[in-house]
Amino acid sequence: MNLEEKLKSGKFVITSEIGPPKGTNIAPHIEEAEYLRGKVDAFNVTDMQSSVMRLGSLATCRLLFEKGLEPVFQLTCRDRNRLALQSDLLSAAVLGIKNVLVLTGDHTVLGDHLQAKPVFDLDSVSLLKVATGLMEGKDMVGNELDGTPDFFLGAVVSPGYDPQELQLIKMEKKIESGAKFFQTQAVYDLAAFETFMKAASRFGIPVLGGIVLLKSAGMAKFMNENVAGVNVPDKYIKMMAAADKKERAKVSIGIAAELINGMKNLCQGIHIMPLGWEKYVPAVLETAGF
């Protein structure tokens, strides 16, 4: 079964993510994915995450595909206008890539090429609509396609966003434009996530809750101050602060497993963003009972 079929079947789905390198040294990243073979249902490949220039998502997706690992092609609106976005979607289709996660993308000034032109010709909602149109055999201006792609379209949502209603309005627009599944920003506050899922469940679209492994108390505090929509509760910060350096990974694995267990009855799967801690993902899943 592929990702779409698994979600349809009601299986609790696990996705992870790999971030291509700055340069051509992709082998270690493919190895990281290999390491999770059989444990994870699909791998997102980020599109120049944090607006840092890197190897492309599409090429990396194809490398995973050739290995028999299921990729999720992340496509942002930051760097390409509507011609390039449509063309890359068609390219993805002929390369065998079915899953596409559509995002607006971080602003260029948050990355390493501050002098770049931020494009944002389309945004997540309009790009979803355009991708849906391609699946119906038409480009954005209504011209007919010779050969029609087939995608499983996803999008992102931020459960900790304030005001939540504004986030839900945008989520609904994404669904109306063709999103069939959602992955979320990192979740640490299960009570707040439950409130969000209660509101979002009316859409009847699968949601994969975001998991980011805490590496230290400092990282948690940094995220609380700087990462939009993320709120790490004090109890986890204290647990991480109390752990000595050798114990930190173990405590972090325990926290992630607790969050995953808490999410099992709230949403339809999880999306793990290991941010360099891929080696701990199997332990997290095992501790969480997978």
Binding site: T104, H107, P118, Y161, L166, K170, K173
Partner: peptide, 29 residues
């Protein structure tokens, strides 16, 4: 900051500012 037409991106800070410029309110909020 991104000139988005269909709602905010995920980059609204906790106090309703834009993550690109902390002096600037999030237009969509």
């Amino acid at each position: 900051s991104k000139g988005l037409l269909n709602g905010p991106c995920g980059g609204t800070t906790k106090d309703g500012k834009c993550e690109v410029n902390s002096e600037m309110d999030c237009g969509w909020v």
